Amino acid sequence: MTWKNVRLAECCEIKPPKSEAKKTLKESDLVSFVPMNNLGIGTPHLALEEDKALSEVTGSYTYFAENDVLLAKITPCFENGKLGIAKGLTNGVGFGSSEFIVFRTSNQLIPEYLYYYLLRPSFREQGQAVMTGAVGHKRVPKEFIEDSEIPLPLVEEQKRIVAILDQAFADIDKARALTEQNLKNARELFESYLQQVFSLSGDGWVDSTLADIAENLDSKRIPITKKDRVEGEHPYYGASGIVDYVNDYIFDEELLLVSEDGANLLARTYPIAFTATGKYWVNNHAHVLRFKDSFIQKFIEYYLNSISLEPYVSGMAQPKLNQKALNSISVPSVDSVIAKDIVERISALEDELNQVQRIYKAKLDRLDELKKSLLQKAFSGELTKRCNEVAA
């Protein structure tokens, strides 16, 4: 059976009027308040954490009611898929960001079916292509929303599709959570091994500082503002690694770069020490260190990534590891033979970790593709058709 395509403006009320709330509630009555941060990604559930008096929110905030569907219209929230269904609202009413688009479904369309339709990556891609406004403040046009056509089967068929997608997405989310935990466990195992290696110092290990074993080349760094950079083939390094590519270089040797500033100095979501090779440029957000031996350099890179730098970092709002603090970091000093042995053992385990990470990341990609495939099949009629064939 062929489904009819219907414009969203014809099967939904878009932006219901605030006057509804004023007719049913007193100014002092509480309503749910939902800022943009509380609109989820990949989940229909809103984070209902705050109530406000109706009088506080009727001005510039967006009104919605129980079972309305909310969609972020501004970049990057729209592209990221911020979307949800209003359920469990205080007094059945909510107000939130002025950047919400609110859909109220009709008797021919259920909210959950609309939610999955708006969740499709193809919908976001089409919307992104026609966004208007200044950079950083682009919004999806009203006309795109109103004119988007949704395949509209009977309500009972919509319910069947939603039930299938709910179960499939729940299973996929469980698989994703398990895979992400496995990724985390693998990383933590490697980090634990690093800490164990460096805590069991043996013969030939001498307490030292970075200033004693490395030459600091910070004075050679030159920052280039984004508008002054000329695109090229040479990596342009900052605190987090390569941030751009430029047409010239400062260094042409293997050196160790260490983050100078940024939240990652404390958060440690990615390495703060990393090796740069070839021809490249470094700005003033990464310290530059030269070592007499490549194995000693790699040994120190592993060591710095295994310890907390909190005692050396100043500033909490804007963490910074200045040159004086960097030079004072206590490090083990070893000869090249010891460094080579330890680096080779750590590198072997790191290679295994990288292989495991590639496997798990590939699985995460397949899970994402499975969701996309299910959504495509759901709105082409294939999903329930296949279920009917299996049932027969």
Rank of each mutant, 00 (worst) to 15 (best):
residue 80 N to H: 14
residue 89 L to K: 09
residue 92 G to K: 11
residue 90 T to Y: 08
residue 104 R to C: 09
residue 97 S to K: 11
residue 83 L to P: 04
residue 87 K to T: 12
residue 101 I to E: 06
residue 73 K to L: 03
residue 97 S to W: 00
residue 95 F to T: 01
residue 99 E to L: 03
residue 71 L to F: 13
residue 90 T to F: 08
residue 91 N to F: 03
residue 88 G to R: 13
residue 102 V to S: 13
residue 92 G to N: 11
residue 85 I to C: 10
residue 74 I to V: 14
residue 93 V to C: 12
residue 85 I to K: 09
residue 73 K to A: 03
residue 99 E to V: 03
residue 94 G to Y: 00
residue 77 C to M: 11
residue 87 K to L: 09
residue 78 F to A: 04
residue 85 I to M: 10
residue 91 N to R: 14
residue 82 K to L: 06
residue 85 I to H: 09
residue 97 S to I: 04
residue 95 F to L: 04
residue 98 S to D: 10
residue 74 I to N: 05
residue 81 G to S: 14
residue 73 K to D: 03
residue 76 P to A: 12
residue 98 S to R: 07
residue 83 L to C: 06
residue 86 A to K: 06
residue 89 L to Q: 02
residue 73 K to V: 04
residue 97 S to F: 02
residue 97 S to M: 05
residue 97 S to E: 03
residue 101 I to F: 09
residue 103 F to K: 11
residue 70 L to R: 05
residue 84 G to S: 11
residue 95 F to Y: 15
residue 72 A to C: 12
residue 92 G to I: 01
residue 91 N to T: 10
residue 80 N to S: 15
residue 84 G to M: 04
residue 73 K to N: 09
residue 71 L to N: 07
residue 86 A to V: 02
residue 84 G to T: 01
residue 82 K to T: 03
residue 74 I to S: 08
residue 100 F to N: 04
residue 78 F to E: 00
residue 98 S to Y: 07
residue 86 A to E: 00
residue 93 V to K: 10
residue 83 L to V: 05
residue 103 F to I: 06
residue 104 R to V: 00
residue 102 V to A: 10
residue 99 E to A: 11
residue 89 L to I: 01
residue 81 G to A: 15
residue 87 K to H: 14
residue 71 L to G: 07
residue 101 I to Y: 12
residue 94 G to E: 02
residue 93 V to L: 07
residue 76 P to L: 07
residue 71 L to C: 15
residue 93 V to Y: 01
residue 74 I to E: 02
residue 87 K to P: 03
residue 94 G to S: 14
residue 98 S to E: 10
residue 88 G to N: 13
residue 95 F to V: 07
residue 75 T to D: 13
residue 98 S to T: 15
residue 103 F to R: 13
residue 72 A to H: 06
residue 78 F to V: 06
residue 95 F to S: 05
residue 85 I to P: 00
residue 74 I to M: 13
residue 86 A to H: 10
residue 89 L to N: 03
residue 80 N to D: 13
residue 88 G to C: 09
residue 75 T to G: 14
residue 92 G to E: 01
residue 75 T to L: 06
residue 81 G to N: 12
residue 98 S to I: 06
residue 91 N to I: 08
residue 92 G to P: 05
residue 105 T to V: 11
residue 74 I to T: 08
residue 74 I to Y: 07
residue 95 F to M: 08
residue 80 N to G: 15
residue 82 K to E: 00
residue 70 L to H: 10
residue 95 F to H: 06
residue 90 T to K: 15
residue 103 F to P: 01
residue 72 A to R: 01
residue 72 A to I: 00
residue 105 T to F: 01
residue 76 P to C: 12
residue 101 I to D: 00
residue 101 I to G: 04
residue 74 I to P: 02
residue 85 I to T: 09
residue 90 T to M: 14
residue 77 C to W: 02
residue 79 E to Y: 06
residue 89 L to W: 03
residue 88 G to K: 15
residue 103 F to G: 01
residue 82 K to V: 01
residue 75 T to V: 04
residue 99 E to T: 06
residue 96 G to W: 00
residue 87 K to S: 14
